[in-house]
Amino acid sequence: MNPKRRTRLVAVLFLVAGTAISVSLVLLALNENINMFYPPDAVVSGEAPIGAQIRAGGMVADGSVLRDPNGLDVSFVLTDYAGSEFKVRYSGILPDLFREGQGVIVQGELTDRGHFQASQVLAKHDENYMPPELAELSPGHQKQPNLIDHGR
């Protein structure tokens, strides 16, 4: 390679490396803020602020969904299957994928440590797809806590 091209190549590599390093530093500094929601342990431990608009996520605990027979009010418990859980109240229509054992993200505010008043509920889909026949053969597959085992 002739010297002129080598100089240009080095300059270009510096440009890309410099950009990559500065972007990484910005992302590292913003790390906590890029997370879309607080997982259950952050809600319980006090990391999530009380009374502010936040998002929190977790898996809907089995047998915890209570529906008001005369309205749209619903309450359920979000858990990480590792000991941290909090109760959510919501009034409105839930997404189709909402069910026990499913990951959801709720938007709203914490009224106190462990109680969340939600204004929006989003269902989090995992990366697994399967036909209904196969799903019946593997009853345990929904309960994997894959919502919280990455990130952080």
Partner: peptide, 19 residues
């Protein structure tokens, strides 16, 4: 990061998470 979008269903190393 924690995102609403699900992780990749296909990776070069692992089996795809669908039939």
């Amino acid at each position: 990061w924690l995102t609403l979008h699900q992780p990749a269903s296909f990776t070069l190393t692992g089996a795809p998470s669908m039939p």
